[in-house]
Amino acid sequence: MNWTPAALSQDIPSGSAAPGQLGDKDIVIWRSASGRIAAWSDRCPHRGMRLSHGFVRGEFLSCIYHGWRYGDGGQCHRIPAHPELTPPEAIKVPVFAVVESGGIVWVAEKDAEPADLPMEFAGFASFRTIRTTVPASIVAAAFGCTGLELRGTLGGTDVVLLLQPLTDGCNLHVLAADGTGPDQLDRVSVAVEALRRQAESVQEFAA
């Protein structure tokens, strides 16, 4: 299995958590106060609450429901209802392998991560992610390509589009050529949204 681009690094600032997906699994991607990135199952083992609704303090992610606090390796460190208790080791959130490179957060199944690091896209910088309900294959076709890693131009700028299949559509992670100015990036934005609309209309037509 390959690394999956799950988010852009810039969209997960220190001290924040966001929902994501790896295949059909819901994950939480979060970054500690010191900047460490992590990808875990998006479910607190206590009462099933999504951890992506939780809050980050220091190097820990806490569930918003009862404040159960999790750290390195998904281990539970604190149960606020029982402040004196050392939580048993069995209370642990399943974790995923995660690597950041080129401004992208790459995720893979733990202990099944690819031997090679994720591909790097020299000369490109991560720009933005947009989500669509259309499958990756239709988005690629609308861009005149196949596959999940597309190269071409949008709004007059050279781009790389990384498509991340989701259970109900896909994410388009957009990388723009280094040195692209703000006005040009605006045109890339307009063009990628047009691409999305085009793909969505293709899907509606097919339906």
Binding site: D26, D42, R43, P45, H46, R47, G48, M49, R50, H53, I64, Y65, H66, I79, A81, H82, L85, A90, I91
Partner: peptide
């Protein structure tokens, strides 16, 4: 409600093991 609509699974698990309770 912001909690209740974000619990997984949506159904309440009655078998032990699916969720971990404490004394509280």
């Amino acid at each position: 409600r912001s909690i209740l609509e974000n619990q997984i699974p949506a159904l309440l698990p009655l078998d032990p093991g699916k969720e971990i309770p404490t004394r509280a």
